[in-house]
């Protein structure tokens, strides 16, 4: 059911992004990347937030399941982060003429990618389960404290060529109604896709924990 709904919604978004949404004045075809790049960026941050939340809960309750959820959210987050980075670089090539030029926005997404990668290298470096859960939860929260700095402060200090993000200084949305329809459906679709994947992961984690228990009983 959820699968079918997501399939239809995301198909509609793809069709809508190319054929339904008009181009704003003076903008070229490649600006349609907006309908995929921005939702992916939003989910990257969302996944990071969810992971930080589970990390905090782990430190409070010391339940190994919570640690597994935090790791699962980060695994999905790194995927979306890659999508954001690659679509952003492609757009930058078309619009600015170079794939990468350390624009503040590019720096911040790259740092997020580094943090995600560092999180997993920390996880693989700790053998004891409890230690791994505790240390990675601490790292997740530490990194989380620095993220607002990248997203909100650095792009304000340094001039960025990046188009205004949705949360801009004037608090205005510069899209016409058709663009907004496609954009918001895409945002919903990406978020639901993430939540669906995350839910699958959670079920896998619960099932494998359950099977481990059964195995232990038989032994």
């Amino acid at each position: 059911m959820a699968k079918a709904f997501l399939f239809i919604l995301l198909s509609l978004v793809i069709v809508g992004a190319y054929f339904y949404a008009p181009l704003a004045k003076g903008l070229k075809e490649y600006t349609r990347v907006l309908y995929f790049h921005v939702p992916a960026a939003w989910v990257t941050v969302l996944a990071f937030l969810i992971s930080a939340w589970y990390s905090l809960q782990y430190l409070r309750k010391r339940d190994m399941m919570l640690d597994a959820y935090a790791a699962a959210a980060n695994q999905l987050g790194i995927l979306y982060c890659l999508v954001t980075t690659v679509t952003g670089a492609m757009w930058a090539k078309a619009s600015w003429g170079a794939y990468w030029n350390w624009d503040p926005r590019q720096t911040s997404i790259f740092i997020l990618l580094l943090i995600y990668a560092a999180y997993f290298s920390l996880r693989s470096a700790v053998e004891n389960d409890q230690d791994r859960a505790r240390l990675s939860a601490v790292y997740s929260l530490l990194a989380f404290a620095t993220v607002p700095f990248f997203i909100f402060i650095i792009p304000r200090i340094y001039e960025s060529l990046h188009p205004d993000p949705l949360i801009n200084a004037q608090a205005k949305i510069k899209m016409n109604i058709k663009m907004l329809q496609v954009f918001l459906s895409s945002l919903t679709g990406f978020t639901l896709l993430f939540l669906w994947l995350f839910n699958l992961k959670k079920r896998i984690i619960k099932l494998s924990a359950h099977f481990e228990e059964i195995e232990e009983e038989y032994e």
Binding site: L114, A117, L122, Y139, A143, T146, F149, F150, I154
Partner: peptide
């Protein structure tokens, strides 16, 4: 180095 770099980069 891997863990501290993203945190110290700002």
């Amino acid at each position: 180095s891997v863990l501290s770099f993203p945190i110290l980069l700002p």
